[in-house]
Each structure stands twice: as structure tokens, then as C-alpha cells.
């Protein structure tokens, strides 16, 4: 284990270069570059706002003084972290098979491949967050109160995402149809996470289904989304209990993902 980590350290420049490669390739083709990647969340927000806020009348909770009241902002605070996970997963699931040429011909720690995709997306996510900050500042929100906590949550979510990506990219070597399955998994996961609706809606159901809120919070993405939203939208510190849970789940996911990946890594070059 220690040796593995030492080796990872030796190859840190490769990781960095692969992250750079991913970002460069992504933004190379257009002058607008990064701003193109903003288009996706903006359009999604417009569509979702129309469908869910205007047509279906989903209402974000009414908040105390100092916070703002706006469905698009309410949505974005959860949608951006969700996109970070879902884009990372859909891109990195193919990172071993897609780089088969490299895996079969050159030796390096394979976990670098999915990790570099996650890190490239993390940078993308951070840039999107910055844009969101500008928007929030413009609207007069006091989101900056708990900024250090937000950074901590982002780091924890990154660890969680890397863990998930290690598992899925490894599975994809042996079962290529996992890719198609992933789309469905992500769709269900998206609706099971309070992104387009407030968590209060779930709480309101608890008189009929008392176990529902508890089951909801088992989903680590729900925990993350609630934490992001409470800092950015509600300008409140997130529940420490929830944060603790997120840390434990993320570290376990990363650890398990790493073990899983390493158990199968030796045969990658043969299976691709």
C-alpha cells in the first residue's frame, strides 16, 4: 500500500499532464472554450425552471433574511455538484478501455486514468462555481460566510467521485454494457437526489412514509447536495451530522474502489 502510494507520487506529473490533456482537448476546438461548457447548465436550468417551477409549480422553501428566493439559483446550487459527479462518471467509465492502447503498451499506475478525468472535471466544476458566485454576489447573497466549509465539501465529494469512477471504469473492462446501464443508473440517481425539488417535499411525506427521509439521506449525493445548498442558497452551515456521514461514506467508497480496482488491475492489459 505504502509502495503503491510512493509510485503514485512518482507518477504525479503524468497525472497532471493527463489532466491538462483532457482540459486542452476539451477547450481547444473553440474560441469560446470554457464558456461553451457553461451552456449545458444554463440551458438545463432554463428548461427545468420552465417545466418544474412554472408548469409544475415547485417552490423552493421560503427563507430567512439574507438569503435570496429564486428557483434557478436554488436549482443551480445542486445541479452543478450533481453534474460534477455524473459527467465524471460518464467520461471516466471508458477511461481504461478507451486508453487501451496505452494500457497495453506502457506501464504506469492505471488508477491515474480515471483520476485524471475526475480532476479535469473538478477544475471545470470549480470554474462553474466561480460563475455561480458572481451570480450570487450580484443577487446580494451572503454565500461567502461558510466558504471554507464549501471547499471541504468539494474535496470530500471529489474523493467520493474518484472512488465511484475507479469502480465503474474497472467494471467496464469486464462488462462493456455497464456503459449503457450507467445512463439509467444516473437518471434514477438524479431523481432520487433532491435537485429539482426541495428536501422539504420529502419531509412532508414523512407522516405517510416515516422511513422516507432516513432512506433519502443514505444517498451520499443527497447529503452533498443538501450541504451545497445550505451554504450557497440558504447561507447556513450544513448539519455536522450529515457532513460526518458524507466523510465516512466517501472515504469508504474511495477505499473500497481502490481495493477493487487494484484487485483487477493486473489483468487489464489482457482483457482489453
Amino acid at each position: 500500500m505504502v509502495e503503491k502510494l510512493k509510485e503514485l507520487f512518482v507518477f504525479r506529473e503524468l497525472l497532471l499532464n493527463l489532466v491538462k490533456r483532457e482540459l486542452k482537448v476539451k477547450y481547444k476546438k473553440s474560441i469560446l472554450g470554457f464558456f461553451w461548457s457553461l451552456l449545458n447548465p444554463i440551458l438545463t436550468t432554463i428548461v427545468f425552471t420552465f417545466v418544474f417551477a412554472v408548469l409544475l409549480r415547485i417552490q423552493p422553501p421560503v427563507l430567512r433574511y439574507g438569503a435570496i428566493f429564486s428557483f434557478p439559483v436554488f436549482l443551480l446550487c445542486a445541479l452543478l455538484p450533481w453534474n460534477f459527479l455524473s459527467i465524471s462518471l460518464s467520461l471516466s467509465i471508458n477511461s481504461i478501455v478507451g486508453n487501451g492502447n496505452l494500457v497495453k503498451k506502457v506501464y504506469f499506475p492505471r488508477e491515474i486514468l480515471p483520476s485524471s478525468t475526475v480532476l479535469a472535471n473538478l477544475i471545470n466544476f470549480c470554474l462553474e462555481l466561480l460563475v455561480l458566485f458572481v451570480l450570487l454576489a450580484f443577487l446580494g447573497s451572503r454565500f461567502f460566510l461558510y466558504l471554507p466549509l464549501l471547499i471541504a465539501i468539494t474535496i470530500i465529494q471529489t474523493l467520493f467521485t474518484i472512488g465511484m469512477c475507479l469502480i465503474f471504469s474497472c467494471l467496464n473492462v469486464y462488462f462493456r454494457d455497464i456503459q449503457h446501464l450507467l445512463g439509467i443508473i444516473l437518471m434514477i440517481w438524479f431523481y432520487a437526489t433532491p435537485i429539482i425539488y426541495p428536501f422539504e417535499y420529502v419531509l412532508q411525506m414523512s407522516h405517510k412514509l416515516p422511513w422516507l427521509p432516513f432512506v433519502y439521506k443514505l444517498n451520499p449525493m443527497a447529503t452533498f447536495v443538501l450541504a451545497y445548498r445550505s451554504i450557497l442558497y440558504e447561507c447556513q452551515p450544513p448539519s455536522l451530522f450529515l457532513l460526518g456521514y458524507a466523510v465516512v461514506v466517501s472515504l469508504l467508497t474511495l477505499y473500497f474502489g481502490y481495493l477493487f480496482f487494484n484487485a483487477y488491475e493486473p489483468t487489464f492489459a489482457e482483457e482489453i
Binding site: R21, K24, V25, K28, K29, N99, N101, L102, K105, V106
Partner: peptide, 12 residues
């Protein structure tokens, strides 16, 4: 050196 140019990216 099992293959030359393994990992070259055409866009770069």
C-alpha cells in the same frame, strides 16, 4: 518501447 507514439493525442 513497445510502440512508438503510444498516448499521442491527435488534437494536441
Amino acid at each position: 518501447l513497445l510502440e512508438l507514439g503510444a498516448g499521442f493525442h491527435p488534437e494536441l
